[in-house]
Design a binder for these strands. Sequence first.
DNA 1: TTTGATGCAAAGTATTTGCAGACTG
DNA 2: CAGTCTGCAAATACTTTGCATCAAA
Lengths: 143, 143
Amino acid sequence: MDTQKRLDYLLVRLRERGNRLTPQRVAIIRTIINNTNHPSAEQMHSEILETFPTTSLATVYKTIRLLKEIGEILELGFGDDSSRFDGRKPHPHPHMICTECGTIMDSELDGFETIIETMARQTGFSVKTHRFDIFGICSSCKK
Amino acid sequence: MDTQKRLDYLLVRLRERGNRLTPQRVAIIRTIINNTNHPSAEQMHSEILETFPTTSLATVYKTIRLLKEIGEILELGFGDDSSRFDGRKPHPHPHMICTECGTIMDSELDGFETIIETMARQTGFSVKTHRFDIFGICSSCKK
DNA sequence: TTTGATGCAAAGTATTTGCAGACTG
DNA sequence: CAGTCTGCAAATACTTTGCATCAAA
């Protein structure tokens, strides 16, 4: 993935919407895009502080919400009040979550969309989005 | 589904574990099993109060947790701190959630387990459980 | 200059927890 | 009658919000 291209795309999109490109906002977005580990809000915040020390957690949350509203970040909320985010591939896709080490892995699945569409047609349900999480032990933790 | 049979099964199972069958606990379990609407904890509590007025919300939560621990209730937690529960079919299965009216519908899907197993085998991931939610507009709300 | 954005601290909210008293087995 | 369960209220923890101040355009 070309992260630089995605960053430019997002900045242009925000500017065109009339959103301001503050240094904090740019730093937050850069972190979200570069981090491949599906970080939590806290993790993003810690990471951002290293390069831009005057950024509050509230602003991180506000930026996340902004990106959610325009569909540019995927939120993976879990029951225990711990949301993790995917700002690199914001379209819904399956995730495999290791309950041992907490790693979240992307998982493309051929024919997945087709299955959903078939189900939708059969039941008269208009699908807008979906969420598919698989929990278990990753190959590293099995050793 | 034979709800009476499931109720008896659960009561026996709890007694055999050494759990006590208090009137509150029995009332809560009865409600969980009878309600087909994937109720929230609050909704269960309100429903229970009608037939057993001296039941606290805390006890409802404690009973839910007990049932979760023994795998007899499925929790569907959503990001906005609203958990809904399925005590009738506690094994993981896909749900279709109407974002208009909030209805949660069960959805059996042939070959679904097979897909997961295939994915697991390819990646060396040991699947323990999964969660599949489809969001959209139900046929009633489309009219 | 205009208005949206930031940052602090306080509020919000579903769920959990501690503990004294009640009740099941 | 031993030990679990209940119910109350306080605690928790992530996220949101209000508002005065700041700064992008």
